[in-house]
Design a protein around this nucleic acid. Structure first.
Lengths: 355, 355
DNA sequence: TTCTATTGTGAGACCGGTCTCAAGAAGAAA
DNA sequence: TTTCTTCTTGAGACCGGTCTCACAATAGAA
């Protein structure tokens, strides 16, 4: 079927025009689908294009139109099921709107994120969806906005950025689950996150750069205070960004004299790690330890016991961010919109009363 | 800090040249980092660029150089942990080599895959990494090769495509695990895959379009034959491409009179589903049913019992494909290379002797 | 001092599309 | 038949870079 010779140099509108015996402008009109052309000419050009196996060069098109048909997506780590599901939501909506997605992992590192934004702006993406690693370090995002590229924030907002934002009701979710644990009699409740601070210790929620996590910790601490529990800041542990780190932190915590009776894991990767560790230490969930994890990863329902989770609408988080962005790219959006999606607590057997 | 006015129209080399008092060509030499320029001029241009906050337009650069600095990646479904991990491997290597990644999901549908390839070629990607949905339906991939875009196949090969390919030793892995199950006394072994056939029934391995799965099934059947087991084709079940489908197939299978004593799940999503179902049906793993799953998803070690898996080097699968592609893009590759990565059976408590 | 090399710089073509503008052809109105 | 629209079409500028080529200036060799 490979009739045409393997031409390394591609066929252009000029080639098609020559073959069809019309001007480049006319051929372009037919191939680009703009302007008016007579039926006779349209057919001639179409035939020539087919014969030469013409393929439009989107790059060249983008040069003049100023639209590249791509949106840049920057997430922490595509390997994390949270992000892979959110990205699925983004790509589904993007494809529907005829946009293609350039994906870059930041590794939750602001330097990498900055480089990613720079790269994407250089590639002239039409819009950006970013899950900022640090919401107080977003000068590079302001830069993007300043250069006129629409931006939507995913899962994490920023007070200084007046852009479309899609987040979950993290604070509310944390308040709820904390209240529930307290009602179950827990007093020693640890909150464990991958976020880190300069000295790897938690002092105040303000130190937490990741918006969603900061809001959760605020909720956690506020409910604790409300319930008369003091010094709960000590139970917030940061820096669980690898299984090894998590292992060290959790092991140390569970083997200390004043150990937690409940752990809230800030994502499913940490939750899984905690689950592994409790077994290694010969502890029992929920007898010795109650466990709650953010993100209802698929496996959480099959462990023994199944894990209580905060269910986040992850796919919708991504899909909605993409929808807002696409609307703005189509000139529909006016002022920045903030969408807060509802979470839901799915109580399973990993949480139990503490007497 | 927003000193510069919000210029919607971006700064070009010509602007920088004008400000630096040199020609466009000279400014371009400095900014593009090619040719020779005097130190004095270099500084003047650099200063002007900084003052104007010049950002190179990669699109324009790509126009002349013919290199877009992007590689197109087409996978079945980024939500599947197998692919998200492989994509992580790809993006890591790509970034190192200064390439960005355009990601498209095919949903394991050839029509979508074809459209994806077309889109990516139009966007003038420098190379392609594809996990073809059907290895016998790859005319669109030939097209890509013909148009001179290097292609690397991920996890699934194709006999008709003479391109760089990175796969796992699927057939060998299937043979091994099948042999092991037979040694444990199993005679009724089911193989369950998301791949489908026109009539949703399995007849011969040739009907299976997905290369990796076809090789596994061939290995499975060959070892069965070797062991004197006949008619094992009946135990191969196709079409488990959603949890619902899997549920229906497995439930029916496990409730029939002649039910399997062991199930091999072709991926971790199916494996998880089987695990859920066995509980719902009140069966016991491994007493009533042995379970093996391809892909050692992180959760497989924490279930009760933990699941025996075929560990695939998924990250390396992606990373190696990207490495081969990058080498070829740098003109290093000569003939097509096929890399076969080793798998490993991790035997856990979900498989047991059958008397 | 004169004649090559070598280096630095500018003018302008080019990549492959889009798009403006003007002119020619055809049809409608007078 | 003449004039005014409307429809088609072509010429060529343009997007923002790269890159070739020619020329000027400087340096080194004879």
């Amino acid at each position: 079927m490979d009739q045409s010779p393997p031409r390394s140099t591609s066929v252009t509108v000029a080639d098609v025009a020559r073959r069809a015996g019309v001007s480049k402008a006319t051929a372009a009109r037919v191939l680009g689908g703009y302007g008016t052309v007579s039926e006779r000419v349209r057919e001639a050009v179409t035939a020539a294009a087919r014969a030469l196996d013409y393929r439009p060069n989107e790059l060249a098109r983008s040069m003049t139109t100023g639209r590249s048909g791509t949106i840049g997506v920057v997430v922490g780590d595509i390997e994390n099921p949270f992000f892979s599901l959110a990205v699925r939501g983004i790509t589904d909506v993007a494809r529907q709107a005829d946009f293609t997605v350039i994906l870059i992992n930041s590794g939750e590192d602001v330097v990498a994120e900055r480089a990613a934004i720079r790269t994407l702006l250089a590639k002239r993406v039409d819009g950006l969806i970013v899950s900022p690693a640090k919401e107080n370090d977003v000068e590079h995002l302001h830069e993007a906005v300043r250069s006129g590229v629409p931006l939507a924030l995913l899962d994490r907002g920023s007070d200084t950025l007046d852009v479309d934002t899609v987040i979950a009701d993290d604070r509310y979710a944390a308040e709820n689950i904390t209240r529930r644990l307290i009602a179950l009699g827990h007093r020693h409740i640890a909150y464990l996150t991958a976020c880190d601070t300069p000295d790897h210790r938690f002092h105040t929620a303000k130190d937490i750069g990741t918006g969603s996590v900061r809001r959760r910790i605020e909720g956690f601490l506020s409910v604790c205070r409300e319930a008369g529990l003091t010094g709960m800041e000590d139970w917030v542990r940061v820096g669980a960004f690898t299984p090894e780190h998590t292992h060290r932190i959790v092991t140390e915590m569970l083997q200390s004299a004043r150990r937690p009776t409940a752990i809230i894991a800030s994502d499913s990767i940490i939750g899984l790690e905690v689950f592994k560790i409790h077994r290694q230490l010969g502890l029992s969930i929920p007898d010795d330890l109650s466990l709650v994890s953010f993100h209802d990863a698929d496996w959480t329902s099959v462990t023994t016991p199944p894990v209580t989770v905060v269910r986040q609408p992850v796919y919708d988080l991504g899909a909605t961010a993409a929808k807002l962005l696409v609307e703005r790219l189509n000139g529909e959006g006016q002022t920045a919109r903030v969408v807060v999606l509802k979470t839901e607590i799915v109580e399973r057997a990993s949480t139990r009363e503490r007497y």
